[in-house]
Amino acid sequence: MSRLSVWFVRASFLYLLAGLFFGGLMLAQKGIPFYAPALHLLPLHMEFLLVGWLIQLAFGVAFWIIPRFSNGSARGPVRLVWLSFAFLNAGILIAALQYWFPSAFAVGRAAEVGAALLFILGSWQRVKPQGA
């Protein structure tokens, strides 16, 4: 597994844990109310699990597994994909601040769009037949 995939996948594991923790707090609050503001964790729960866990894991595994080039950089423009990693995680963390700063939601989402575009640019040509 490449170093960048290790970062993507391990980061996705951390978001899985955080997302499940927040989800657990909300579910427990529904069962035996102990702290009403726990229900405000819903946007974080969704952001961490959908973007932080599922999408980030997909980026990491795709970067590891899709066909490599036989000439030049085996995994193509790796710096673009590192930048995608930075944008994705900055976007998730900025979007997580939306409870305190409502505009952070849009800024974080915009960074996530940037991350997706960078990932697509960095990977597009690797989606090819083996050996091509």
Binding site: F13, L16, L17, L20, F21, G23, G24, L25, L27, A28, K30, G31, I32
Partner: peptide, 20 residues
């Protein structure tokens, strides 16, 4: 049902923790 949800929450988190 309330306490069942609490147990469910703990189990789902435990699943993630054991996996990681």
């Amino acid at each position: 049902s309330g306490w069942t949800l609490v147990v469910s929450a703990l189990l789902q988190f435990l699943a993630g923790l054991a996996f990681v």
